[in-house]
Every structure is written in structure tokens, then in C-alpha cells.
Design a protein around this nucleic acid. Structure first.
Lengths: 151, 151
DNA sequence: TAACGAAACGTTATAAAATAACGCGCATGT
DNA sequence: ACATGCGCGTTATTTTATAACGTTTCGTTA
């Protein structure tokens, strides 16, 4: 994300939290900013390393607490298959996103494909299942890495 | 799974491995059997505990190696969001299954919903993404636990 | 059948990811 | 001012997963 995009995300996050009576503290803001600034998902411990610049003596609970808050408020996503986190590209949206994870270059892109969302919803409903959190991570090779090798 | 179902799974696994020139060793068979016999997903370490009955001094690599083999051959699935494993209900199928995970009772059921599979395939294709492994885990409340509380 | 090479396994150690538990301090409202 | 709850610091521990290296087992081929 560019500096400007990050600023916009922080702005939106601020607004969203204010509206909910939630406190976007310095550390939480820092974690969100670091995630947005990274071009790759970050593990909690990578995040921890990067926090050393801004915060004095961060320990694991510091980063996990911030992540818990941000996850609750839909500002970041956890990629379960990578044990890593990314800033949410669409914080206003519904949080039924899907992730394309390139196992070659490590790039991740977030989709909000309504056909996928609907089919998942339908499949759950058919089983009488009330869905609270869909985890959809497609692991494979991105267009760039696949480059011309495949039709 | 019932004893008979487990026997059938082991039989199929045997056959499948033979056909591929892969060796379904005693330990691998044991891990597969234990997973099938459990009514819940098992973590690697729970599995390790249960192996103590059958195998002398199992250490983590023992169970992880068996799991790697079984995963490669599509005989078990890993539930990324739970750090746990289940026996595959449909070892003959395509391995694009979806999982419904009840966060209330812990029960997991495996689907093979073709509408979901197709929409995922389509979404990936639209992004030029070549998918090798879909991770689809729907977290929520199963019909039983939701029991009457919801329309 | 003896020798070989690959695959499977035993073992010890360590890395990586996540949480428990406890107390302090600060902001918020009464 | 005071009480309450939330956020945070800190230490320790638990849980999950892998590295590294030597030994054994198995199937193949000479």
C-alpha cells in the first residue's frame, strides 16, 4: 500500500472505532499501519520485530492483543494457512473475503467474490449450519509467477 | 466412524497406495486408523498420545511424518483453523472439499459441494490464478447446536 | 543372494506460534 | 475524588512444528 492508502485506512479505522466506542490505541494503530505497509503477510513475530522501532519492549502478548482487537473489528485478516496477518483491503465490507495465496512468490490478494460468498452461504444453509466466519484461502500460483507457462 | 467403516477406509487406502507404489506402513496405518476412530479432529500431539498404545516411543517427527504422507496421498485433511487433522471421508474424490466446523461442539463435517468448487475455480481463473489447494473452512454453529434457537 | 540406494524411522534438540496469569496505571463517568 | 474497567507490561509456559543426523528396512539390480 502507498503512504496515502495507509493514511486512508487509518482514517477509516479511526472513524469506525469511534463509531463503535472502541479505542484505537497507539499500539493498535501501529500494528495496523505495519501490516498495511508490508507487501507480504506478516507473522506475529515478524510484526513484533518491526514494532521494536516504534515501541519500547514489545512482547508476544503485546502484538497478539493488538491483533485480536483488529481482527474483532475486521481491520485485519488472519491467513490461517500461513500463520500470518494482512491489513484488510475493504474494511467497510462484509468480511467474507477470499484469499489467493501464491506459494511461489508469497503474494496474497484479497477477493470479495459474490458468487463464492453465495455458494458458501447456500452450502452452509443446506446443512443447517449458521456460519460466523468463512475461511477461504486458495493456495496456488499467481498469474505473474505462472507467467506464460500455462494456457 | 464405525469399525467397519474404518476397515473399509484402511482397505481403500491400502489399495490406493499399492496402486501408486507408495508404502502404507504400520505407523501410517495406525495414524489413519486413529484419526478415523476419533469423533473429533485430533491435533498432532493428541494423536501422539494415542499412539503410545500401539507404538513404543513416538516423538513429534513420528506423527508429523505419517501425517505428511497421508496428506500427500489425500487420505487425511488438515484443518488449518484448528491445527488439527481428520480422516478423509472421500479418499477417491477430488480433494476440493469444504469443512463445516462447529465452534460450539467441535464437530466437523466434510462437504463436496460442486457449486462451491466451481465458484472457487471460476474466481481463481478470473484472476489468472492456478489453484493447487483450496482451504475452505466454514466456522459457525452446526444444526444440532443451533437447535431451534434460530429460524 | 550380495550389494546398493532410496525411503522410512529413531532420537535429540530447537524453532515458531500462541496463551496464561498477575499486577499496574490510566481514562472515563459518577 | 473515587471506583470501575480497559489496556498494557512482564514473566513464564504451553502448543505446534521442524532441523539434523545416524540407523534400519525394503526393494531393486548386478
Amino acid at each position: 500500500m502507498t503512504e496515502q492508502e495507509i493514511a486512508a485506512v487509518l482514517e477509516r479505522a479511526e472513524h469506525l472505532c469511534r463509531g463503535r466506542g472502541a479505542r484505537l490505541t497507539q499500539q493498535r494503530r501501529t500494528v495496523l499501519r505495519l501490516l498495511c505497509a508490508s507487501d507480504k503477510p506478516l507473522s506475529a513475530y515478524e510484526l513484533l520485530d518491526r514494532m521494536r522501532g516504534c515501541i519500547k519492549n514489545p512482547a508476544p502478548p503485546t502484538v497478539y492483543r493488538a491483533l485480536d482487537f483488529l481482527l474483532e473489528h475486521g481491520l485485519v485478516h488472519k491467513l490461517e494457512s500461513l500463520h500470518a496477518f494482512v491489513g484488510c483491503a475493504h474494511p467497510e465490507h462484509t468480511h467474507a473475503g477470499q484469499f489467493l495465496i501464491c506459494s511461489d512468490c508469497g503474494d496474497v490478494s484479497e477477493l470479495e467474490d459474490s458468487a463464492v460468498a453465495k455458494s458458501l452461504q447456500a452450502a452452509g444453509k443446506a446443512a443447517g449450519f449458521r456460519m460466523t466466519r468463512p475461511v477461504v484461502e486458495l493456495i496456488g500460483t499467481c498469474a505473474h509467477c505462472d507467467g506464460g507457462k500455462q494456457t
